[in-house]
Each structure stands twice: as C-alpha cells, then as structure tokens.
C-alpha cells in the first residue's frame, strides 16, 4: 500500500502528458465524460461517475475494422485498419467500471479468438481508478458484492483520504509505478483510515441481489410469468445497453463510396428488433418480451455460465437513464421471489 499527496499526484499525472494521452472525467453539459485532459485543474466535486461507460476507451461506439479499395480494372485491395495505439492513461475510473474492463477482457481477449483492436488499446492503456466515497442513489455495486473500494481492473486505485490519496496496485505495471517517487509507502495512519473505510463497505457488501433461481435450470427460468409482464413498458431503445459498461454487442456494416470501403463495427443492442432478424424476415426474438429476457439472462445467467462472472457491475447507469424507469434491480428482486409493487 502506498500514498501520495494530492498535489503531488496531479503534478506527477501532468508529467505523464509528454508521453501519453490522458483521459479524465470532464464536466460537459450532458454530464461527466472521459475526455482528453491537458493539465488544467480537474473539477471533481460533483463527480459520481461518467455518463458514458469506460468501455468506450477500448471498444469505441464505432470504428473501422478493415478498409478496401475497388479501383476499376484492378483487383480489390484489402487492408486491416490499424487501431489507434497511442499510450493512454485513463484517470478517474470508478471501481465498478474498472471491473467491467475485466469482464470485457473475457469476451474480446478469449482463449480462442482475440480482438486485435480491443487488445491493442487495452495493452496501451493504464487505468487509474478513484474509489467511491459517496455512491449515487442508483448505484448498486455492493448489492452485487462489489466494493466501492475494489482495485480489480485498475492498474492503480486511489482512495481519497483528504489531502492525500492512498494508492493500491492490482497489476505489475501499477506496482512498478507505485514503488517509485513521488509515491511512498503508506503510513500506519493512512492504512488505519483505509481499513475503517473498508469495514463499512464490507458490511454493506454482504447481500447479493442475484437470486438463486438464476443458477438453476434455464428451462425453468425461461418460462417464468414475469417475462410476460415486465417488458410492456420498455421502449426497446438502446439507452440501457449503450450506457452499460459490460454490454458488448455490436454490428458490422460496410460504408462505401464508388472506389473505397470500410467495414465498420458499431455498438448494437439486443433491445433492437432487427438485432436478430434474419434476411428472410424470421426473427427468433420478435417482441420486447424475448429481448428483455435476453438482456437480463445474458447478464445474470449466460455470461456467468460462460465467463464465470455476472455481467453487471451495479453502476446504475441503466437505472438512472431509462426513459421509462425500467429498474434492473426490481427485476432481480422479482426473480428472487419478491412480489412487491407494479413498478416493474
């Protein structure tokens, strides 16, 4: 465990600007977003989390995967598109989002298939997270057993201790940085403070919102009557999935002129009707019912079965931004047998 005076930290961070691009939470009209930082003072007093999730840095909303040229009388020329590989520091990531990076790793950097673009960005990015002290009302990481002080997924996690940060590393890269000045080993006083904070969050993290039934047979979960009810108010827009740090579904389409083309990957959403629609018109998930069921079960059943972790980190973006107040927490409660009100 290490520590650093806040002023010294920001000086150090500024010093990194020469070699690296730095993205930090910046307040825009619409909310906080990870945007390029060039060293000016960061306004973080009202910062709970960014509006858009951190996945954007590794898996951007759209990017070209390949390019081609179709010149008359010449064979088509096809080239791989090189992802931007500029070394990057992501500062101010919240622990929930940091965890989401580890989950995306399992998808895009699997044992058999690896996504070149994702992986190159991932390897070129150094993640410095900020532990949460005041979660928003929509935050529910602790209901999923995730601590607001968790360092998983961060190269370095900073914990606010007033005039200084306590600093913890979760990677070798992070540990190497912390061993050098201006970071110094944590004083016993700082460690005590951290332990006190941890005690509070550990108590809260006891409960899990993920109900037992989701570990059971799919044939039973799939036919529960709640799927016939909860989907009705959903607009089938992409807010929840686009703002979700772990949703990773995408589309691939070609954008072309007469002589040039690029194959573009763009975020897609299981909430959209045409997501699964065949060329013939047949659609295995024809209504909102099947799509909501897919989203919930993908996060809380299929992903855990395939990748050994729930694909939700409790950041609450989907809860906060859903136009009709569809609240995933209520769905989990109902799956767990709680028959409360009509809000679902």
């Amino acid at each position: 465990m290490y520590e650093i005076l806040k002023d010294d930290f920001f000086l150090w961070l500024k010093g990194q600007l020469g070699q690296k691009e730095i993205l930090a939470p910046r307040l825009k009209e619409e909310g906080y977003l990870f945007l390029p930082w060039d060293g000016e003072e960061l306004e973080l007093t009202g910062y709970t989390n960014t509006l858009k999730p951190v996945k954007d840095a590794f898996f951007p909303q759209w990017e070209a995967l390949i390019r081609y040229r179709m010149d008359k009388g010449k064979p088509v020329q096809v080239m791989g598109e090189n992802p931007a590989t500029k070394p990057l520091i992501l500062f101010g990531v919240r622990p929930c989002d940091a965890r989401s990076i580890l989950l995306l790793d399992r998808v895009f950097n699997g044992p058999k298939y690896k996504d070149q673009h994702y992986r190159e960005r991932r390897e070129n990015t150094f993640v410095i997270s900020l532990a949460c002290s005041e979660p928003a009302s929509t935050c529910f990481c602790q209901d999923l057993g995730i601590s607001p002080l968790a360092k998983e997924g961060s190269d370095i996690l900073l914990v606010d201790l007033g005039d200084k940060f306590l600093a913890l590393a979760d990677t070798l890269k992070g540990e190497e940085i912390l061993q050098e000045r201006p970071f110094s080993p944590a004083t016993p006083g700082s460690m005590d403070k951290f332990q006190a904070l941890q005690g509070v969050s550990r108590q809260a993290a006891a409960a899990s919102l993920v109900p037992e039934i989701l570990s059971g047979e799919l044939s039973q979960v799939f036919v529960l009557p709640l799927w016939d009810e909860i989907y009705r108010k959903c607009l089938n827009c992409g807010v929840c999935t686009y703002l979700c740090p772990t949703c990773h579904c995408f589309d691939i389409s070609d954008e072309t002129t007469d002589t040039e083309g690029r194959r573009v990957r763009s975020w897609d959403s299981c909430m959209f009707g045409n997501f699964t629609q065949h060329g013939s018109g047949h659609n295995p998930r024809p209504t909102g019912k099947e799509r909501i069921r897919q989203r919930v079960l993908h996060k809380f059943k299929y992903f855990p079965e395939n990748y050994l972790a729930v694909a939700c980190v409790g950041c609450g973006r989907c809860v906060a931004k859903c136009p009709v107040n569809f609240d995933i927490r209520e769905v989990l409660k109902r799956l767990g047998g709680c028959q409360d009100d009509m809000s679902m």
Binding site: Y113, H248, Y302
Partner: peptide, 19 residues
C-alpha cells in the same frame, strides 16, 4: 442451425441460444 450472425467468433452477441 442458422442464426443472424455478424462477427462469427462469439463476440457480437446476437446468435446465442441460451448460453
């Protein structure tokens, strides 16, 4: 089976049946 597919390598998320 036939499903709508894009990536073909288990990432784009649309051709799943259960897990």
């Amino acid at each position: 089976l036939e499903m709508k597919m894009k990536c073909g390598i288990g990432m784009c998320g649309r051709c799943n049946i259960g897990n």
